[in-house]
Design a protein around this nucleic acid. Structure first.
Lengths: 328, 328
DNA sequence: TTGAAAGCGGTACCAG
DNA sequence: CTGGTACCGCTTTCAA
């Protein structure tokens, strides 16, 4: 490349990197640019990375690819990364002994930073990252150990969902909660409880079932709620999958939704419309979370920004047909 | 690292890479190993890659993350890559002007190979890859231009689906086909037609609606089919999303499934059980496709294998409640 | 304004 | 068996 332009490699480097401080004769610059164009020249990323200590890659750790919420986050992350000429290296956590494993890439200095997306990250891992001062950002997960995270407004979303039920006249509102280990789940539960209290409704622990975010949890959860006392007239599900499971159980129980039971959930997907009778949801800004997390991470990598806690406010109630008035 | 063990870096390298041909005194070897352990030493991947010309990364190009089928493929790919100490770099095609763009990584010699997963890859791209002798494998997509691909048995799956309908007594079977530009779609259509012919049923083009693989296509497609002549008693949808759309339309049309209309589709997901009345599907080995594609790709990278065409045979009819006898 | 040289952190191929 | 050395392809500093 350099020889085609008949210049020294260092000059080529300066030109191609748009080094402002370097002064290069206009004619020479042109020669370089033309040569580069002609050869469709692309500098070797590894060599460059070796020299500059920047790999231009980040890792995204994701617990479960089949969860559409993570697909959204991933998409946002990839979009934003690309805008900054960064690549996203994927580490799905189900691919073996977690722990250090997914940090291998960081240890090999293959990546400039890590995004931890609601992974069941051990606090220990965060501490280590923190101790090494290695750039990382939590996505969709808070932690008091972590100095940087990007999350949605889980509390607010849960409030909106619950208030929607209350506005429709419900008083005995059940909650299919996510795992107690997930702070998204606890925040949503908080929001649910706060909405009830704000409406002067007593919070009844018997109306809350904890499980994980999976479809099967929603199924058994709803059965439990339905056979319990008091029996709810509406249910707020902490995740799309939980709602799907609940709907499934309702069907098995021959319950009409929303006539016998109303259901709302968090996280909006195209499929929510497809499942009869059409699931009412609260949209969380998942893609935006991915974007913002990358933005924050790259800010840290570039040393422009120490990071911080970002709570994305955008919420939207997507009203369909799974909510109606209580029937008793 | 080398200095802790008090050996020359080259020795350390030999030991750590388990170079068989090199002879190293047992004691020295131990010293190196201990030092490496103690420092939790990980060689710099970039430096190593620069030297060995192997980045230990591959790119996976995916058209659309929100399609669960690709999530499955991705998962398989990631699993298999990890087994071979490889990293997967993600390039979702919706992230901007495609074309060369997603090949940037290859041009920067950041990756050792590319997986093209049913991307709407221009033939030109394939030709280029071929011309450069750059390792690549098509996944879930055939092309006569391509010397290597891994696909499922689309034709067979379509046959199984259609035959299932026939076995249930249907004769007027409609088909919601995928885009004519996708060879998976054409293969499925072929399978559908062949199954009909094998059963002595005349193929009627009026019973086939082409669209894309999206939910909305399924909705308008089913409406078209239902209002057309002849009116089908059953429909074979070429994708899960198409089936979802069809189910949606059926609901709008107040059709009972399967009483008024039977539906089968290809691609098995957990959600298929969740959508009333429970969608009967034919499972395609998506995860396996991802795995095998990576396997093939790495074989090529290592020069052990020229590649070839791999058609994964595993198919499975997952019978639920969306298929019944025709009602007329 | 340009050229030369060093070096990022390894690996590979020598000679000792 | 071990140590030296060159070099992968680029950036950066310094001298010309």
């Amino acid at each position: 490349m350099a020889q085609l332009a008949q210049v020294h490699p260092s000059i080529a480097s300066r030109v191609l990197n748009g080094d402002k401080s370097a002064s290069v004769k206009e004619e020479t610059k042109q020669r370089v640019l033309e040569a580069a164009e002609q050869l469709a020249y692309r500098p070797n990323g590894l060599a460059r990375g070796l020299r500059t200590k920047l790999s231009h890659c980040i890792t995204l750790v994701i617990p479960d690819l089949s969860n559409p919420a993570f697909a959204e986050i991933l998409r946002g992350a990839e979009l934003e990364a690309r805008r900054s000429q960064y690549y996203v290296l994927l580490a799905s956590q189900d691919s073996g002994p977690q722990e250090k494993r997914f940090l291998r890439a960081t240890l090999e200095s293959r990546v400039d930073g890590v995004l931890l997306a609601n992974a069941k990250v051990e606090d220990r891992v965060i501490e280590e990252l923190e101790a090494d001062a290695f750039p990382y950002v939590l996505v969709n997960r808070r932690s008091h150990k972590a100095s940087r995270y990007v999350v949605g407004d889980d509390h607010g979303a849960a409030r909106i969902a619950t208030e929607h039920l209350i506005a429709n006249g419900h008083r005995r509102i059940g909650h299919l909660a996510g795992p107690e280990t997930a702070d998204t789940a606890t925040a949503r539960r908080q929001g649910y409880e706060d909405a009830l209290r704000a409406a002067g409704i007593k919070v009844d622990p018997a109306l809350v079932v904890c499980g994980d975010y999976a479809v099967s949890s929603g199924r058994v959860g709803l059965r439990r709620l339905w056979t319990g006392v008091p029996r709810p007239t509406a249910v707020f599900a902490a995740s799309f999958q939980l709602a799907v499971g609940a709907l499934e159980a309702a069907r098995e129980l021959a319950l009409e939704v929303p006539d016998h039971l109303s259901i709302v959930s968090i996280d909006e997907f195209e499929l929510a419309a497809a499942i009869p009778p059409g699931l009412t949801t609260v949209r969380m800004p998942l893609e935006e979370m991915g974007r913002e997390a990358v933005r924050m991470l790259l800010g840290v990598v570039r040393g422009e920004q120490a990071g911080g806690q970002l709570i994305l406010p955008q919420l939207e109630l997507v009203s369909r047909n799974s909510v109606g008035a209580p029937n008793d």
